[in-house]
């Protein structure tokens, strides 16, 4: 995917000098391997810093909330779905945006790669679908497919759904992947086992809220966890508070989550926070036939009412 870089730079410089946009939001190289940073390019020179590779898994739609003026944004499949969600939720106007679409072949799981080696990784390079990981005294080449982040491995919307210009040819969408395979294990457990599974999953949570901050859906001016009058949830490390936070965070994303995986990537403790949102995505698909961010003309299931909405749970 590194060959998109030149095209992205070229488009960004063009739209900036033509005055079509005031800035282009993209990625630049980070200071650590596998860690690219979001970058606001406001001039042709700063557009030179823009890059694209398999470590751009943060979701740039997060930086669009309530922005003024004309903005260019680099968007892979999931980013573009979150841009659509932003437009639907009136957080940005479509005509403010110039979307540079990037057909994506998946992003790397930095946790997985880090856990493969005992010593520090100093460099990660990619060429085509081969990833070369280099550190002190070792260098290994692996295929990208086996290093993909879990959400990318089961992604069925790799191409952007909404764009003004593409940085490369559209890629073939993955077929025959079971998007919800990770849920089946939990679904087959008994209630007690499920409870313990999630207690265990969240036991390392430090309540840093990185998952919330990385999420493009979490744009409330004051989040319910930061509110102190009334205080909805305790600020302690008590398992009850931790679970309340995670359940509610996920529920606020119901029918809106695009499974971009930004929450999981941002988590410093490596908690699989997608386990929660994934279940809600599955329910939305099964109950309402809905996948978030695919069309600008449809309202999400939780803000519309239909007489044939499923209501077996209510008596």
């Amino acid at each position: 995917m590194t060959d998109y870089t030149d095209k992205i730079k070229e488009i960004a410089k063009r739209v900036l000098t033509e005055g079509k946009v005031e800035m282009v939001i993209g990625f630049r190289k980070g200071t650590l391997p596998m860690m690219n940073q979001p970058h606001y390019a406001t001039s042709a020179e700063s557009a030179n810093e823009l890059i694209w590779d398999s470590n751009c898994s943060l979701n740039l739609a997060n930086y669009l909330t309530d922005k003024k003026g004309k903005i260019g944004i680099v968007a892979k499949g999931c980013d573009s779905r979150n841009i659509v969600t932003h437009v639907i939720e009136n957080k940005i106007k479509r005509d403010q945006l110039y979307i540079i679409g990037v057909p994506c072949t998946g992003m790397l799981d930095h946790y997985k790669i880090n856990s493969m080696f005992d010593s520090e990784i100093l460099k990660v390079e990619e060429s085509g679908d081969k990833i070369t990981i280099t550190g002190n005294g070792f260098s290994e080449t692996k295929s990208k497919q086996e290093l993909l982040a879990e959400n990318c491995a089961v992604c069925t919307h790799r191409n952007p759904v909404e764009y003004d210009e593409l940085a490369g040819d559209l890629v073939e969408e993955q077929k025959d992947v079971d998007q919800y395979a990770s849920l089946t294990k939990v679904e087959s457990m008994s209630a007690d086992e499920k409870w313990n599974y999630f207690e265990d999953l969240l036991s390392s949570c430090i309540r840093c809220y990185a998952c919330r901050n990385a999420c493009p859906l979490c744009y409330c001016p004051t989040c319910f966890v930061d509110e102190s009058r009334p205080q909805w949830v305790g600020k302690s490390q008590d398992p009850t508070d931790v679970k309340t936070f995670h359940l509610l965070r996920a529920y606020h994303c119901a029918g809106r989550c695009t499974d971009c995986g930004a929450c999981e990537r941002a988590c410093p403790m490596g908690i699989k926070v997608r386990e929660f949102t994934k279940k809600l995505n599955k329910d939305c698909l099964e109950l309402y036939g809905w996948e978030a961010g695919l069309s600008l003309d449809e309202r999400p299931p939780l803000d519309t009412f239909k007489t044939d909405d499923p209501d077996e749970f209510i008596k």
Partner: peptide, 20 residues
């Protein structure tokens, strides 16, 4: 909501919804 809470380990039957 019900599905979701039961997925995270609350026993079916403990959670009820009604419109009265």
């Amino acid at each position: 909501m019900k599905n979701f809470l039961e997925h995270t380990g609350i026993e079916p039957g403990r959670l009820h919804f009604s419109w009265i």
